[in-house]
């Protein structure tokens, strides 16, 4: 991620949330991921030396469901591999399938300042909607 993602932090009393606009659906997924990691850690100091391919298959999943699964998958990558992700390239996005190349850097407590722990992406108040050609994404996280 070369630029800090442009998103609005939602004033949720207990947790954190984000709202963003994207020109297309692929960008909506990429920006949501980048914004989630930006909530967790300042992305400016995160490199892109480690690359992973992420694949999510979910039959019967709608867009909202796919968004939660996508963010959940990336949180799992962070938790299980201690990988802070900063760059997201969705290479395939179709009904029930997302494939993406993601890059980042192993978390180093000496260099990376974590801001907020995100436990999960929730379905509460979730939105992945298209209005007048713009995609709006809203996600509340358990933090």
């Amino acid at each position: 991620m070369t630029e800090r993602p442009d998103y609005k932090e939602i004033e949720h009393t207990a947790d954190v949330g984000l709202e963003l606009e994207a020109p297309d659906l692929k960008a909506a997924f990429e920006l949501a991921a980048a914004s989630m990691f930006d909530l967790m850690c300042d992305l400016d100091g995160v490199g892109d030396g480690v690359r992973r391919t992420v694949r999510i298959r979910a039959r019967d999943a709608d867009l909202e469901n796919m968004m939660v699964r996508w963010l959940t998958e990336l949180l799992y990558v962070f938790e299980s591999e201690r990988l802070l992700l900063s760059c997201f390239d969705v290479t395939k996005l179709e009904s029930g399938l997302i494939e993406a190349d993601v890059t980042g850097e192993r978390y180093d407590p000496g260099r990376h300042a974590l801001k907020t722990e995100i436990k999960a992406a929730t379905y509460h108040d979730l939105a992945v909607d298209q209005t007048r050609g713009v995609w709006l994404v809203r996600v509340i996280f358990d933090s």
Partner: peptide, 9 residues
Amino acid sequence: IHWGYGFPI
């Protein structure tokens, strides 16, 4: 009570 997700806290 305060705003949570699903249930209120």
